[in-house]
């Protein structure tokens, strides 16, 4: 899956499931959209569905420091690459 495809899916999820309004890729998720650790845990379950494999507990812990949509995309690409290798 390309970054653009991922980006599209993530934005749809954030708007439909997490009540985001006009999300920007560099917005601070917590400050601008009230996105917190519980949201992050729910988003990780959605990401697992997109990727089709389970994310390890350690990788999930790293997701708690995500701040922007770009960070989410970087994070997904990193775990995708790790999973392939």
């Amino acid at each position: 899956m390309t970054r653009d495809e991922l980006q599209e899916k993530i934005v749809v999820i954030l708007v439909d499931e997490f009540e985001f309004e006009n999300p920007g890729f560099t917005d601070n998720l917590r400050d601008d959209h009230g996105f917190d650790s519980i949201d992050a845990i729910e988003l990780l379950a959605k990401i697992e569905e997109i990727l089709g494999f389970q994310i390890s507990r350690k990788e999930k812990e790293k997701a708690m420091s995500i701040r922007t949509i770009n960070d989410i995309l970087d994070y997904i690409e990193t775990i995708q690459a790790a999973h392939k290798s």
């Binding site: 650790s37 519980i38 845990i41 507990r57 999930k60 812990e61 708690m64």
Partner: peptide, 16 residues
């Protein structure tokens, strides 16, 4: 109530 440091793991476990 927060996820700093070691609490991230606990929060993930408990919410899941």
């Amino acid at each position: 109530s927060t996820t700093e440091g070691v609490h991230a793991k606990r929060m993930i476990e408990q919410v899941e």
